[in-house]
Amino acid sequence: MLIECPWCGPRDETEFHYGGQAHVSYPDDPSVLTDEQWARYLFYRDNPQGRFAERWCHGSACRRWFNAVRDTRTHQIVATYRTGESAPVT
């Protein structure tokens, strides 16, 4: 894959490492969660067949985390965007 780092530009996938689903926030106060709710945060992530907003880190270069929307059926990357921004496409 060729991944467009929002900071560095398009680079080969071997420069990146993967971080799974994007936009999963650490709970405000884990202590108030039930075990089941905490398990949801720890272990449950979306796994869609199709477009997926996911995290990547440009570990071999700028070391920045960013997000991508990628189609898991084709590996086509629809968009990449910086952490903290919302997905430009869904």
């Binding site: 971080g19 650490y26 880190c57 570990g59 985390w65 952490t83 903290g84």
Partner: peptide, 13 residues
């Protein structure tokens, strides 16, 4: 280092 960067950048920017 990766672990710390991940938290810093993605959870507590």
């Amino acid at each position: 280092l990766d672990w710390l960067e991940e938290w810093l950048q993605t959870e507590w920017p």
